[in-house]
């Protein structure tokens, strides 16, 4: 791999791993100098860009931890949610409170009711008991679906944006910006012509369109490659830093040390978020 390509890839990967732009610039410059001095091929001296970027991110201890406790008002308060199908109780007495500027993760085994709980919070499914308070606008991203086969991406943006009261041009531009954060440039293809992962990117962008106060995301990363998966979490942290309340249903644990609230539903459907 030639120097320039490797260095460009390194720049990208450092950004994905949350390394700040100043430090990233230094790291890349230093690596470039080393490669010039040693004359070694980059892959031998440093390894693949993603691995080196991960090692760098590790060494600096990740992005600076925000001061915990600087949270905003309550955005989502679910109290004592109960839901059963026939004789099977899926959720019994589940509660969750999420403030502005917090990220909550809902974890649990398959079938533990994570998606059902999220849909109840969004108001898309009825609950047998309990109450949900929503303080602000809501964006929801299902695991699949939520798009129209025969419409193009910009038409989706216009349609959803109109609901939020956005003029068409602004909605399309906002959608394009959010899409590029996920490494995607929407073209003129209809949704049915997009690959599975790209269609999910559209789904995620639509959830965040119009900057809702509360984001409810149900494992939206189906079909994402590793880079896009990291981009997704990058967006989640950005949303948090901008004061949104984000709830993510996930069964992948490696990002859990950076979320503020964890709701574990695997213990028989009862849980109170820490």
């Amino acid at each position: 791999m030639r120097y320039e390509i490797w260095l460009a890839a390194l720049t990208d990967e450092l950004r994905r791993h949350g390394v700040g732009p100043d430090l990233a610039g230094h790291v890349v410059a230093e690596a470039a100098a080393h490669l010039r001095d040693s004359g070694e091929p980059p892959l031998r001296a440093f390894g693949p860009p993603s691995a080196y970027a991960a090692a760098v991110a590790d060494s600096i201890g990740g992005p600076a931890q925000r001061a915990r406790g600087v949270v905003g008002p309550v955005r989502l308060r679910a109290v004592d949610i109960t839901k059963g199908y026939g004789r099977r109780t899926v959720l019994s007495g589940v509660s969750l409170t999420v403030h502005a500027g917090q990220v909550a993760a809902i974890v649990g085994a398959n079938g533990s009711g994570k998606s059902t709980f999220l849909r109840i919070c969004a108001g898309l499914t009825g609950a047998d008991g309990g109450q949900v308070e929503l303080h602000g606008t809501v964006g929801y991203c299902p695991q699949a679906g939520g798009t129209a086969d025969f419409l193009r991406a910009d038409e989706h943006f216009a349609l959803v944006g109109a609901g939020r009261g956005m003029p068409r041009g602004a909605a399309v531009r906002a959608g394009g910006r959010q899409a590029s954060a996920l490494d995607w440039t929407p073209g003129g293809e209809q949704a049915r012509q997009l690959s599975g992962g790209t269609r999910q990117k559209l789904n995620l962008v639509l959830a965040g369109l119009g900057d809702p106060d509360i984001l409810l995301l149900d494992e939206p990363y189906q079909g994402f490659d590793r880079g896009t998966y990291l981009d997704f979490w990058h967006e989640v942290w950005q949303w948090r830093d901008r004061g949104r309340a984000v709830v993510v249903v996930t069964h992948l644990l490696n990002q859990l040390d950076r979320v503020d609230v964890v709701l574990d539903l695997s213990a028989g459907g009862a849980g109170v978020a820490a």
Binding site: A122, G123, L124, T137, V138, G139, Y140, G145, G146, T147, A148, D149, F150, L159, V160, G163, R164, G165, L206, A207, L209, G210
Partner: peptide, 14 residues
Amino acid sequence: AARSLEPRLRLSGY
């Protein structure tokens, strides 16, 4: 065809 999109549109303010 519209069914899958309607919940999202509802949440978006329609």
